[in-house]
């Protein structure tokens, strides 16, 4: 598995456009800035929805109204983050694919997506009239709290990717090297 990921990353790394992106004067910074600024739209909207469910924001606006209206800007923001995120990965594929933080972030992203799906299913199944109460029912509150926790983790991991503490090049402890997918004897980092 790790060998395959490494080979795939090497293949991406061999593309001229990947190198160009990495070494370009401004492009990389712009993409990263866009990635981070899109956070203000997508996570800003998501957090408002989650806090509304927990009874901490916009208590007088019906919960379903908050969820529906903020869904559109949130999804636009997420699309921008997804595209720029893929480009950031593409610019530095080998190091990123072997980053412990990137791997944790990836798992958390999947967890957040599953949680969001479950949340929407529960929201549709919730008994009528729940959404005008300042706090949502328990199972929706749990979903909202999990969503907040996952995204806090995702942002922290994202921030940590920039640090080289556990890079394969630094020859980390065996467990971390295994989790990060370092390949013994690899020459490209």
């Amino acid at each position: 598995m790790n060998e395959r990921i490494y080979q795939f990353a090497l293949w991406l790394d061999g593309k001229a456009s990947s190198t160009a992106l990495h070494e370009s004067f401004y492009m990389y910074n712009w993409i990263e800035s866009t990635h981070v600024l899109a956070l203000m739209i997508s996570l800003g909207m998501l957090f408002l929805i989650d806090l509304r469910m927990l009874g901490l924001a916009l208590p007088s606006v019906p919960a379903t109204t908050v969820a529906q209206k903020l869904n559109v800007p949130m999804l636009i923001g997420f699309s921008v983050m997804m595209v720029t995120g893929l480009l950031l990965f593409y610019a530095i594929p080998v190091r990123t694919s072997q980053s412990l933080w990137f791997r944790i972030k990836f798992v958390l992203l999947i967890a957040a997506a599953v949680n969001a799906l479950l949340f929407h299913r529960r929201m549709r199944a919730a008994p009528a009239g729940w959404d005008t109460a300042p706090r949502a029912p328990g199972n929706l509150r749990l979903g909202a709290a999990l969503s907040l926790a996952f995204w806090v983790g995702i942002v922290i991991c994202g921030r940590f990717i920039a640090y080289d503490w556990y890079d394969c090049r630094e020859e980390p402890a065996a467990l971390i090297a295994a989790l990060a997918g370092c390949i013994p004897g690899q020459e490209v980092f």
Binding site: L39, M45, R159
Partner: peptide, 19 residues
């Protein structure tokens, strides 16, 4: 880095409130 992540997260929250 953790404080920076907190800064980003609260900035996202602020952005949400403003928007």
């Amino acid at each position: 880095a953790v404080v920076q992540a907190g800064h980003l997260l609260s900035m996202a929250m602020l952005g949400g409130a403003v928007l």
